[in-house]
């Protein structure tokens, strides 16, 4: 009930913010642009639209997850609205979880609207509905959930600007963990390898969530791969949120 109250309030907070709408507007603009760009291609028009649209949905989703995510806790601290909440009989973990679920709900709405628009554009121009790309959308959502959790984690102990940089860095590195693994293998034995391996396992492997190219080119994605990726994402989110709660629990609101 209390988590739900915070989540709904967070949902209202984001939905009533102009920044959110400008991001959604640009994301829609990119979808429109993908249709225009597809006319320049020699290959299959639908592939270009699908590829660009899915990437656009992901990138703007990540921007929303990071920049709104760091503000969720950061703004509460900065504006001191948290005083009103924490002084009521609510536990700090309930507050943090509510904030997280609120933004997850916003992202779910965002991704649903974008997907409907994307499918609409595609059908209007190619008379085809590539249902298999919805699997890519599902994993983009799981990726966004992971990025949101990391943005919340950073904002529990850092300033909004630094949190945004950390979360962005984590997103970029998260897409390069494969390279880290290969680098670890090439360095042979020793401390460096151990450190690289640790970083590889510790950071989120966001590349696992990227099946855009596969679905666009109709390469089948095994069900157990999907299941593993979704479970991995949700477990990672749980771990990050648990860590966030541990830090937030000890925090003094000055």
């Amino acid at each position: 009930m209390k988590v739900y109250a915070i989540a709904i309030n967070t949902f209202k907070e984001v939905i009533r913010d102009k920044i959110f709408y400008s991001l959604v507007f640009f994301a829609l603009l990119l979808l429109g642009a993908s249709v225009l760009l597809s006319t320049l291609t020699l290959g299959e028009r639908s592939k270009i639209i699908e590829d660009l649209s899915l990437s656009g949905i992901e990138i703007f989703g990540v921007i929303i997850a990071i920049f709104v995510g760091i503000g969720l806790v950061g703004k509460e601290l900065e504006k001191k609205t948290i005083y009103i909440i924490i002084s009521k009989p609510i536990k700090r973990w309930q507050f943090l979880l509510g904030k997280y679920l609120g933004l997850s709900l916003v992202l779910l709405s965002y991704i649903s609207v974008m997907t409907v628009c994307y499918m609409f554009f595609l059908y209007a121009y190619t008379y085809k509905l590539p249902w298999q790309t919805l699997l890519a959308v599902l994993l983009i959502y799981i990726e966004l959930l992971t990025v949101t959790a990391s943005a919340i984690l950073f904002s529990t102990f850092s300033t909004p600007t630094l949190s945004a940089s950390y979360a962005l860095a984590l997103y970029v590195i998260g897409h390069m963990t494969g390279d880290l693994r290969r680098l670890a293998e090439k360095t042979g034995e020793g401390g460096v390898k151990a450190v690289l391996n640790f970083v590889y396992y510790f950071l989120p492997n966001l590349e696992d969530f990227d099946i855009k190219a596969k679905t666009v080119h109709a390469i089948p994605v095994p069900a157990d791969y999907l299941l593993m990726s979704v479970s991995y994402g949700l477990m990672y989110v749980t771990a990050i949120l648990a860590l966030s709660v541990l830090i937030f629990q000890r925090r003094n609101f000055k």
Binding site: M1, K2, Y4, A5, I6, N9, K12, E13, R16, D17, K79, K80, T81, Y83, I84, I85, S87, K88, P89, I90
Partner: peptide, 24 residues
């Protein structure tokens, strides 16, 4: 709190409702 700041995007009723919800 001192110089209280509230969720300025909420209306007075919504804010009171949120406060009530937090008390279950």
């Amino acid at each position: 709190p001192e110089q209280p700041y509230f969720y300025d995007y909420l209306t007075a009723s919504e804010f009171m409702d949120l406060s009530g919800r937090l008390f279950g």
